[in-house]
Design a protein around this nucleic acid. Structure first.
Lengths: 191, 191
DNA sequence: GTCTTCCGGACAGTCACTGTCTCAACCTGA
DNA sequence: TCAGGTTGAGACAGTGACTGTCCGGAAGAC
């Protein structure tokens, strides 16, 4: 059973996020208060904090944080992290994929709103920290090197994404990742 | 002339920072309010904000932000960024160097206090963004690649620093940077 | 149908941060 | 040395993000 309670919670979260995006797009992130978001979604401000933690959390779904260690290990390929990343991007951009409708609207704030950007950086930082041991296990990299490399990958990816955004978000993201992260492939090149 | 006003401002900033560190070390970052810091330093809370902008700013001196573009270009070597970074670290750790006494005490909070960590990440992000054009000018890297690489370098450096901290801060930082960022040198290897 | 559990709403409180005003002290030019 | 302009620190009120706690009512188990 899905759990009626859980069901209602999910739908509440979705409508809160959508109303929030409506307001943000209309008046700007800073000009909207949590109270207004709560009123627009017809919930209490407490619930917004219960669901999303922070105002930035309304935009930055910590997808990575939600993954268990096993799920993370299954998604991440230590032998070819950039290839795996590209695969995720391609899957995300696949027109047939069933992606949540808000995910495209949110990205804009990742780069335009400083506090949101900071929240994204923090998420990437946590993700890189969790991925490091997975990389250290299977390769000739020491733990410090693995730690450095996962951070380089995570934030390199972010940088590529930013270029895509600054370019007008017209060409596919995968192109920017492929081209931008190309130099990082040298890390795995045979010497 | 040094400017009497400017002189007093500098000394005020130093004492504020020192008092703040005293309080943070004693009670913990979260348990200390700006008002208490201001009282301990015998200035008004307004001044603390005027000087440091945010509570995290008391610990994260945005040294990079303060540099002009020219100064930045002079410090950064596009041909060998990792070597330049190592040089800075060695200079920092040189026992003969005249470093500000608070700089060692602050580092701890970079990694232990989430909001401070976020502020550091934001600083690195800004630094990487400013460095990208310098890297793109002189090498065979495209602008997107340069953007990715400077982010990889900045946050890779941060990761190496964290390993140093987690290891007890006993061995020299340069060792962690040298070892951890070794794989990134492959980016500049001749193919 | 009852009992338990859980969760959303209400509410009060804290504190980081902002904007504005005032006044005193520095700086400048004669 | 002394006016006049400027700069910058303190005082103060306000906003809004976020926290903790309590309570009632509805979902879940039996």
């Amino acid at each position: 059973m899905a759990g009626l309670r859980e069901q209602w919670r999910r739908s509440a979260m979705r409508t809160i996020q959508e109303r929030a995006l409506d307001l943000f797009d209309e008046r700007g992130f800073d000009a909207v208060t949590i109270e207004q978001v709560a009123a627009a979604a017809e919930v209490s401000p407490s619930s917004v904090y219960r669901y999303f933690g922070t105002k930035e959390g309304l935009l930055v779904a910590d997808d990575f944080d939600a993954l268990t260690d096993d799920q993370l290990a299954a998604t991440f390929d230590p032998a070819d992290p950039i290839g795996g990343l590209l695969g995720s991007v391609l899957r995300y951009e696949d027109p047939g994929a069933s992606e949540e409708p808000t995910s495209r609207r949110r990205v804009r704030y990742f780069f335009s709103e400083p506090s949101v950007r900071a929240a994204v950086l923090a998420t990437l930082d946590r993700a890189a920290k969790r991925l490091a041991p997975l990389l250290a296990n299977e390769r000739t990299l020491g733990p410090t090197q693995a730690h450095v490399v996962t951070h380089a990958l995570a934030f390199g990816y972010f940088a590529a994404l930013e270029r895509w955004f600054e370019d007008g978000s017209t060409r596919p993201i995968a192109e920017y990742v492929e081209e931008g992260m190309g130099p990082l492939r040298a890390i795995w090149a045979p010497d």
